[in-house]
Computed example of a mutant assay.
Amino acid sequence: MTDHQDISGRTVLLAGATSAAGLEVTRALRASGAQVITTGRSAERLRDLADAGAQVEVADATSLADMTDLAARVGHVDAVVPLVGGWRGGGGLAGQSDEDFAALLPALEAVRATSRAFDAALEASDAGRFAIVSSTAVARPLAGGANYAAVKAASEAWTRAVAQGFAKAAREAGEPLRAASVVFRAKTLDPQSLAARVVALWDTDAADLNDRVIDLG
C-alpha cells in the first residue's frame, strides 16, 4: 500500500463534480480526512455528493462570476479540480461539427474560470494544487476526435500557464514554490484511478510536481 501524506484538514474544491468521477474522488478525499466542496448546476444532482460528506454548492463551474463569488464565500482552499467533461466525435474532419465543438467548450471554460477565481487562494495555501483531467488524444489526435483533442490541448496549455504563474509568483516573492498545477491524462477515465491520484497530490513537493503531465493509465 502507498503511504500518502496526511491530508486531513485540507480543503479541496471539485468543480462540476456531478459525475461518477466526482463522486469517487469525493469519497476518496473524505476517507482520507479532507474537507470537500463540490459544485454543480443542479441541487438534485448534488444530493449523492452531499450524502458522501461533501459541502455542496449550486454554481456553474464554467462561469467566472459564479466561481469568483464562491471563492469569496469559501475563503481558504488547498486544491481545485475542475471535472466538467464530455465527449463528442466521429465522422472524420467532415464530421467535426460546430455544434459538437460548442458542446465540448465548457470543459475548457471550467478550467479557465476555476483557475482564475481561485488563483490567489491556491497561492496563499501552504500546498496549493490545481489539477485537470485531460486525454491521451492530445498526444495522438485523430481526425474523428479533432474537436475533442483541440479542447483538451487548449485546457492543457492553460493549465501549464497556471503552473508558470505559480512559479513566477514564488520567484518574485523570493519564496519557495508551494503551489503546483498538473495535468492528468487518461485514455479512458477510471474514476478510482483519478481518485487515487487526487489524494496523492500532496505526496510530491510542489517544485517537483508543478507543470507535470501524469498518465492515469
Rank of each mutant, 00 (worst) to 15 (best):
L23S: 05
Q55R: 11
T188G: 00
S134D: 07
K152I: 02
T38C: 15
S97K: 13
S155F: 12
S19C: 07
E123T: 15
A143V: 08
M67Q: 00
S125W: 05
R73V: 03
D98G: 13
L29C: 10
Q164R: 15
A124C: 10
D48L: 09
A179Q: 03
L122F: 05
A17Q: 02
A31Q: 14
A72L: 09
A139F: 00
E156C: 10
A54R: 05
R212P: 04
A146G: 11
G40H: 09
T11D: 04
Q35Y: 03
V80T: 02
T11S: 08
A71Y: 05
S135P: 05
V162W: 04
E175D: 15
D3K: 13
V138H: 03
L13E: 04
E109N: 15
A154E: 11
A103W: 11
L142F: 07
A103Q: 14
V25T: 07
D215R: 00
A173H: 14
E57H: 07
A94R: 14
D126M: 05
V198K: 04
A102E: 15
Q55W: 00
T11G: 04
L64V: 06
V213R: 01
V77S: 08
G89A: 01
A17N: 03
G91D: 02
E156M: 12
G22I: 00
L105N: 14
A149G: 09
R212W: 02
G86H: 04
R30F: 11
A71V: 01
A169Y: 03
V133P: 05
S19H: 06
A110V: 12
A196V: 09
V151W: 12
L189S: 10
R212G: 06
R41Y: 12
I37W: 06
G92K: 08
K152W: 06
L70M: 10
F184P: 00
D208K: 14
F101T: 11
T114H: 09
V77H: 10
V81K: 00
D205A: 15
E175I: 13
D203W: 05
R88N: 06
A161N: 11
S97D: 13
V12Y: 01
R30N: 11
L177A: 14
A50E: 15
A120L: 02
E57N: 10
V25P: 02
V74M: 03
R116K: 13
D60R: 00
L29K: 06
L83A: 08
L64P: 00
D119A: 06
G145K: 08
A167T: 13
A146V: 15
S135T: 10
P141E: 14
A113G: 13
A161K: 07
R160I: 02
D126G: 08
L29T: 10
A103Y: 08
L14E: 13
S42K: 14
Q96R: 14
P106R: 11
S134C: 07
A31R: 15
T136C: 03
R178N: 14
V133Q: 05
A107S: 12
A150D: 10
A167W: 07
V111D: 07
V213T: 12
S8R: 15
D119L: 07
S8H: 12
T159Y: 02
A167D: 08
L29V: 10
G92I: 07
L14I: 09
G33R: 09
R178D: 13
V25W: 02
V77C: 08
G128P: 03
